[in-house]
Design a protein around this nucleic acid. Structure first.
Lengths: 201, 201
DNA sequence: ATTCGATCTAGTCACTGGAAAGATTCGAGC
DNA sequence: GCTCGAATCTTTCCAGTGACTAGATCGAAT
């Protein structure tokens, strides 16, 4: 590692950036979070990182490759976030919190048009996340009821996902009104879930 | 109206298209439904309509203007679809059905980055849709309970919206498995809503 | 020290969105 | 029927972008 570029505020021009992949990814997340995936430009990211316009290609192949990397990283972080939650309700809260704290990742993850959905690394991370979700649903009903379990899982997923996407698209601005979105979602779950589907106090 | 262009299969070249605005909009919906909003190109749409690449600009100003028109039309159709439903549950079903039958509209509507959210026509249509949603939530609890009403409304909205977006992003493929998404959603609502929040049989 | 692979640069091409200026057609009013 | 203004469409042009290629530079292992 020749040059980490973290010592001075001015970019010290050297041939090798040091950690261009991370720098491009970080810049991409900024742009996406601010203006959406459509506003993302490889050349702009290269400029921000202080490298030539063709440099990112070596790390991500092309634009789709960059977004694939974003989605893969997103699913990995997502799986970790979900795994840390104790019960179903808190897993839903973690779902919403992830969307709120990682809006760029979340947006890209759920727009498969933007990336290569067959990427191996992405598939592995997504599988981990899916497993974390499924595990959350598995401890849901007292006894397995077959088809209803699956439906209940889809319902819980839909509830959390809908809240998260509405939040990111700005449609819950007046519903939350300054309150923490997670908190709103938490009280919301207490309202809609029937008692036998609750695990929390 | 000089030339409707609907008589023959071959485009009869005339200077005026006849209904270019509709033609461009229709082509745009096709492209978005097939490959997402990112794949949309004004020049491509112009080619499909058989006009010069600058022709669409007169009807939509720019790319953002076209997407604004898509969103506005979407909200108008959405309001109509929601207004036709008798009770809250069927309004949710209508929500999901709209997303399934108008995927392009739906996708654009809930990505405000793509269009001009302050467009007057769009705002009017969105207000109608919001009103239709609010009315659906209003007849929900037996007696008004203040803050809980609002939360329940957000919950119902989140449930329908989450199901719809997961459906469009391909995440419910194995959960529906050939069955009509609407039907799956309908049975899902019966499972998750507490009895006192139900109106249906 | 040399070599090899990884990283980055420079140059190029096709495509896109957008703006400007001109051509064609429509339709209202005479 | 004719003219004229407005709407619609074409042509031309420019800057920005993604992607490809060839070459320059660097790092590290041998």
């Amino acid at each position: 590692m020749s040059n980490s570029r973290s010592s001075g505020s001015e970019h010290e021009r050297t041939y090798h950036h040091g950690d261009l992949r991370r720098a491009i990814l970080a810049a991409a997340l900024d742009v996406i979070a601010a203006n959406g995936p459509a506003a993302l430009s490889l050349r702009d990211l290269a400029r921000r990182a202080g490298v030539s316009h063709a440099a990112p290609a070596h790390h991500f192949k092309d634009r789709t490759g960059l977004l694939t990397a974003v989605a893969a990283e997103g699913y990995a972080l997502f799986a970790d976030a979900l795994a840390g939650a104790p019960d179903l309700r808190e897993r839903g809260v973690a779902y919403v919190r992830f969307a709120a704290t990682h809006p760029a990742h979340f947006q890209v993850m759920f727009q498969p048009d933007l990336y290569r959905a067959d990427d191996p690394e992405l598939l592995a991370a997504k599988a981990r996340a899916t497993e974390a979700l499924r595990a959350g649903v598995a401890d849901l009903p007292p006894g397995g009821r077959g088809e209803d379990d699956r439906l209940a899982g889809v319902a819980a997923w839909s509830l959390a996902h809908g809240f998260a996407t509405l939040l990111l698209s700005g449609n819950l601005a007046d519903a939350t009104e300054g309150r923490e979105p997670e908190a709103v979602f938490r009280s919301l779950t207490g309202l809609i879930f029937t008692p036998e589907y609750r695990r929390d106090g």
